[in-house]
């Protein structure tokens, strides 16, 4: 085939050429997964970005370290009331560099919320389009949260059993998270509470393991 010297010269030239190309390519295009508008539409249609209040309440009570609540309302509203452990990233400057580390990460499960879902969903679309993963939207926003977790409506007696279990859970969760007083016995409902019925796909960090470990 080639003599030894020839192969080395050809290989060196080829490597330098390829190296030049890869060095010249702007770095951001080497990030493979900014979403196209088509992909965005698919995600929005499937609605997988929504997380149910029950699931968030469950994670809050269990102090799940993966949960990171993000309040996208204004600082004033945030100061008035916010969910436990939430951080304030106002929608107005969500694209500022100071939030990149929080929003663009693949360890925690970020749950965005606002009063309704309009602002939180807008925030989610913006950062999702940048390719950031692991960001979710609290279904129904704070209004729905107060309705379901803080003041759950007791189910009608004809409802199936899991409705009661869910009611117990919400009642207990609401108490644990600072709503009105509830009899202590009912708090035990949390342990027997069913997992939220709507399965939200939670992507935890899924990097392959490797090295010699």
């Amino acid at each position: 085939m080639f003599s030894k010297l020839n192969f080395r010269v050809i290989l060196s030239a080829l490597l330098i050429l390829l190296g030049l190309i890869i060095a010249a390519v702007p770095e951001n295009t080497t990030k493979p997964y900014k979403l196209t508008s088509g992909q965005m539409l698919e995600e929005i249609k499937s609605g997988t970005q929504f997380v149910q209040p029950d699931q968030v309440a469950d994670m809050l009570i269990n102090k799940d370290p993966y949960l990171q609540l993000i309040d996208v309302r204004s600082p004033e509203e945030f100061d008035q009331f916010h969910l436990p452990g939430a951080i304030n990233v106002p929608l107005d400057n969500i694209l500022s560099d100071q939030w990149t580390d929080i929003l663009d990460q693949d360890v925690k499960m970020n749950v965005l919320y606002s009063n309704g879902t309009t602002h939180s969903n807008e925030a989610w679309m913006l950062i999702r389009q940048l390719g950031y993963g692991n960001n979710y939207v609290l279904e129904g926003g704070l209004n729905y949260w107060v309705e379901t977790i803080m003041n759950p409506a007791s189910p009608v007696s004809t409802n199936p059993g899991d409705e009661f279990a869910r009611y117990d859970f919400r009642k207990g969760a609401g108490m644990a998270l600072g709503a009105g007083a509830v009899a202590p016995s009912q708090q035990e409902g949390t342990s027997s509470a069913p997992k939220p019925t709507i399965a939200t796909k939670i992507k935890k960090k899924k990097v392959a393991s490797g090295g010699c470990s």
Partner: peptide
Amino acid sequence: IAGRGVGASGAVK
């Protein structure tokens, strides 16, 4: 394929 490189000593471990 596997999202990782090759190795050797890990197999001994």
